[in-house]
């Protein structure tokens, strides 16, 4: 069904020139505002970055304690909950007798791989984690030159991320 929309045009609107002059004034105003650096809404990206919300879900990292040891205990909860099936953990053990943590942190991940190309950044892993180990940072610059670089390993994940990035 066609809907006929009535347009109430005045005579001056139909001549178009008045509206044109008004439009020229509007654009000139904006141009002068931009010329004096007021009306510009874009930022120069690599130098200046947008401040995203604290809840932004970006590149993954694993939190570490004061001795730079990862908090992950390889409980597999994140791997289980992950809807994209992108986390692969291989669990191992620290010897409780020699480890400085004793029985704490006895279980540890031997490897912790995340396929960032599969990840859908839902944040379920973050919610499931009982140790607050796996987290999503606020970093959004995740472009890589090769597919291999997008496979995050444990060494990459335990990097220092201050204030969620």
């Amino acid at each position: 069904m066609t809907i006929v929309v009535a347009r109430h045009e005045k005579i001056s609107d139909r001549f178009y020139l008045v509206a044109l002059a008004q439009g020229l004034v509007v654009t000139m105003k904006q141009m002068l505002r931009s010329l004096f650096g007021k009306g510009i809404v874009t930022i120069e990206y690599p130098e200046k970055r947008r401040e995203y919300s604290q809840r932004f879900r970006g590149a993954h990292f694993i939190s570490v304690d004061s001795k730079k040891t990862e908090n992950c205990t390889a409980c597999y909860l994140c791997q289980t909950v992950c809807p994209a099936d992108c986390i692969t953990i291989v669990a191992g053990e620290r010897d409780a007798a020699t480890s400085e943590y004793g029985v704490k942190k006895e279980k540890r991940p031997l490897s912790f791989d995340i396929d960032a190309l599969r990840c859908c950044f839902c944040g379920f892993c973050e919610e499931a984690c009982p140790k607050d180990a796996i987290k999503l940072s606020r970093s959004y610059e995740m472009a890589t030159l090769t597919r291999e670089e997008a496979q995050y390993d444990l060494k990459f994940l335990v990097r220092e991320v201050k204030d969620r990035g």
């Binding site: 904006q30 809404v41 874009t42 120069e44």
Partner: peptide
């Protein structure tokens, strides 16, 4: 640059 200014951008610089 003019179009950028009219649209509130910076343009090639």
């Amino acid at each position: 640059r003019g179009s950028a200014m009219i649209q509130g951008r910076m343009g090639p610089n």
